[in-house]
Computed example of a mutant assay.
Amino acid sequence: MITASVKKRENIAEYLLYMWQIEDLIRANGLDIDRIQSSIIDKYKDLPETQRKEMREWYESLIDMMRREGVVEHGHMQLNKNVIISLEDLNRRLLADPKFSAYSAQYYHTLPIIVELRAKAGENKAGEIETCFNALYGILMLRLQGKEISEETSQAVTQISKFLAILSHYYKQDYNNELKFSEDEDQA
Rank of each mutant, 00 (worst) to 15 (best):
E69M: 03
R35S: 09
I41A: 03
I129G: 05
L47H: 11
R27P: 13
L142K: 15
K125M: 01
K147Y: 06
G122T: 06
V157P: 05
E116K: 14
N11A: 08
E148Y: 12
D186M: 13
M65H: 09
M19T: 07
E60R: 05
A4Q: 13
H74S: 15
Y18S: 11
R9N: 11
N176T: 04
P48S: 02
D184A: 05
G138K: 10
H74P: 00
W58H: 11
R92I: 08
V115W: 04
E10R: 07
M1Y: 03
K53Y: 11
Q145T: 02
V72F: 12
Y171C: 05
A119M: 14
I26N: 02
L136M: 14
V115Q: 13
N176A: 05
E151H: 15
D46N: 13
L136V: 01
N11P: 07
E73R: 12
K162P: 01
I33H: 05
E69G: 08
L140Q: 15
Q173C: 01
S5Q: 14
E130H: 11
Y15C: 00
R68E: 15
L111F: 06
V6E: 07
I36C: 00
I26Q: 00
E185G: 01
A188E: 10
E116A: 15
E54D: 12
K53G: 05
K162F: 07
N29E: 09
F133R: 02
Y107R: 03
E185L: 15
Y44N: 13
L117R: 14
V115Y: 08
A105H: 08
M141T: 02
T3C: 10
A165G: 15
V83C: 08
H74M: 07
N124E: 14
V83Y: 10
E151C: 11
D174M: 03
E152M: 07
K172S: 12
E54I: 06
N80C: 11
T131Q: 04
L142T: 04
I36K: 05
V83W: 10
L94Q: 09
E60F: 01
S38C: 09
M141C: 07
M19L: 03
L25C: 03
L167A: 10
I12L: 08
E123N: 11
W20P: 00
I41D: 00
V6W: 12
E130P: 02
Q159Y: 00
Y103P: 01
E73G: 07
K81A: 04
K53T: 14
S168R: 06
E73T: 14
H169R: 10
M19K: 05
L87E: 03
M141V: 08
S168Y: 03
N80S: 10
A126M: 12
D184I: 03
I33Q: 09
F163P: 02
K7F: 15
L62G: 00
M77H: 07
M55N: 05
M55Y: 08
K45N: 09
P98E: 13
K43V: 03
D97M: 01
